[in-house]
Design a protein around this nucleic acid. Sequence first.
DNA 1: GCACATGCGTAT
DNA 2: TACGCATGTGCC
Length: 805
Amino acid sequence: MHLQAAAVIVDVPARQTDRPFTYLINENLKDSVLPGMRVVVPFGRADRLIQGFVVQVFSPKTVPAKLKAIYAVQDIEPVLNNEMLELAQWLATRTFSFQIACFQAMLPNALRGKTKKQLVVTIPDQLAPEIVEFMAGKPAKIIDTKQLSPELLKKIHQEKSAGKIEIRYLVQATAKPRQEKIIIGQLTRTQALTKKQQQRSNAVQRQRLLAFLAEHYHQAISKSSLEKKLNLSAATLNRAADQGWLRMQERPLQRRAYDLDQITSTQPKKLSVQQATVYKQVAMAVESQAATTFLLEGVTGSGKTEVYLQLIAAALRQQRSALLLVPEISLTPQMVAQVVGRFGKQVALLHSGLSAGERLDEWRRIENDQAKVVVGARSAIFAPIKNLGIIIIDEEHESSYQQDNMPRYHARDVALWRSKFHHCPVVLGSATPALESRARAQKKVYHWLRLTQRINTKPLPEVSLIDMRHAAKVSRDSDFSPQLIAAIKQKLQQKEQIILLLNRRGYASFVMCRDCGFVLKCPNCDITLTLHKDQQVMKCHYCGHEEAIPHICPECGGQKIRYYGTGTQKVQEKLTKYFPTSRILRMDVDTTRKKGAHEKILAAFGAHQADILLGTQMIAKGLDYPDVTLVGVLNADTSLSLPDFRASEQTFQLLTQVSGRAGRAQKEGKVIIQTFNPQHYALQLAKKQDYERFYAFEMQLRHQGGYPPYYFTIQVAASAVVEKVALKALLQVAAELKTVLSPGAKILGPVPQMILKIKKRYRYQLIIKYKHEEQLNRYLQTLLERSQRQTDLQLDIVREPHNFI
DNA sequence: GCACATGCGTAT
DNA sequence: TACGCATGTGCC
């Protein structure tokens, strides 16, 4: 007779609850609770039921009196295997995140237990009339306290303390796979044909059905698709079932993330000499199960994708699986078709376009080994794939691989961890690697591989920089230079396609009074409100605050309050004026908000239903349209002038990438970049597509400035409603750090953050720059533990922050 | 994150 | 002196 207990991480994302809680395993659940399973446990004074993850099962020697018991187990098999449990723990410490946040990041959303509250009437006598009305005669009702009026909430409180009503807690059951009805033919061919003869001539539905059954003896067919195909009524099928012609059953519906019938299979292409060299080196690591990291630096059009596909094939040949990560934005139908075309139904696809159910289905296919190749965006790095033979991260420099809320992980770091766990290589591919990665290749931490030749040996497109300081004076238009107008005109005449990029990074359209200079700001946050012309409102991008567009300046009463800056809409209006007959497609956050809108726009452009594709950053990646012969960048500088040490790097990457979109096929491409800083090295080198020189130059600057990759960085951010609280806390942290850190390390700040106030809280930060610090991690962990004791203060630690400001 | 306890301010 | 509300505290 030995007791069982479980250590459970509960779904309460708070610093104070970020540790295992012990629960008793009752006799009826004995031996059916395992680490990695989801459970429902009572928590807090009111014993509200919440979801938790079992991290350990053990036999306690003594039982503390106040131990509570697990209420229910949600899984038959663990949803997190040992690898994931270990990874979550590492991730939590590495990124200073809650463990529960790590678990949830690893699982499809459908597995997340949604807790609900239920209002139950226990004594109906003399109940407050408001509550009687609210319950509408029912004994129990699900409530959402956030949606109820404060008055009703007060009444509920009163009646609860009077003991007349009760609040119960529910945890939603595990998402079940959707079922579909199927029919199975029970008639042999001859039986069916005989029966068909016997039917009245006007019984057309039955005739059609029997003809079909004659050809499908004992085969399972989805009921709904059969109804559609033969145009049958449900009654006909039910009748047929009654007569024993067919049997009806249910089976779990396999929702698929892609349609295999729509994709043509492809064969491996012959590799060029360079490609083959790269392939051989990585394939060798796959075979020898070496956890080597390769940096594959390949110019646009050098055939990286084909190398990836053949490496995946090499892993499969070794009876191992493969994981391919691509930026969400380039997870286009084109891209999917390439991988699925090569590996068929072994491919599982994970991206944001899937519904929660589809995502869960794909996840299950991976978990039970039906899928051996996983393709997906950032979070796919947590796919529960076993026996990994290779991990590939395409466009490894993309900032979308970094999640910017908890857990703030970088997919690259997780990939390296899993590579060590599975003893398999990682390939980081890019035309413009992140400086950090390129520097690691330099130091031989990564194995450096290069593809310098374009696969069709075509020259790179001709790139010209247009000096807008001059052009704007001539044409009095700061969006379109005469050169760009002329080029567009020419391409339109030749019936070729054009991509125009409006660089929106570091850029906003705001409202300013031209008399007094007043700028409209958010009342909660210290930030300029952004104009949303289509919805006719001013919006705060941080807290969502909205207000009307002012027509009279609130400061001086003047009427000259106008918006500043260029949006895609404004550019589109101008384009229509210049080229009234041209067909323009616009792609930005506004036009792609709806699910699938993204794909639709790209498909329409691909089908030549438009001449010009105008868009923001999102059009720069992975698009491959043979008829695009002109790429125009309207404003290269906005991202350059950001007060961010990565501004040049990001601008260089963007320009290099977008230039690669021109002239992918036979026709020659042309790129026009408009800028106010034509001599800037990032622009000059992007023009020449010279990554290596950019790398050398930028590294020098980073060295002088003491920036990454020469230093590691950690940001400690503090926020509080009372400004002094935040500042004081960081001053103390800075003082303590001085005793913890070695003399080589530097502390910057504390300083106010660029946006000092967000959601009524003041924000300060300090940055630690260091090379090797043994004590730092431990200090920061204890700092977080300590800070929870201080009310109002919120501390947040970010490793390698992307913004210093 | 949430329920309940605590402590202060205001109406009575 | 009672109640209302904001702020604080601990969760197994």
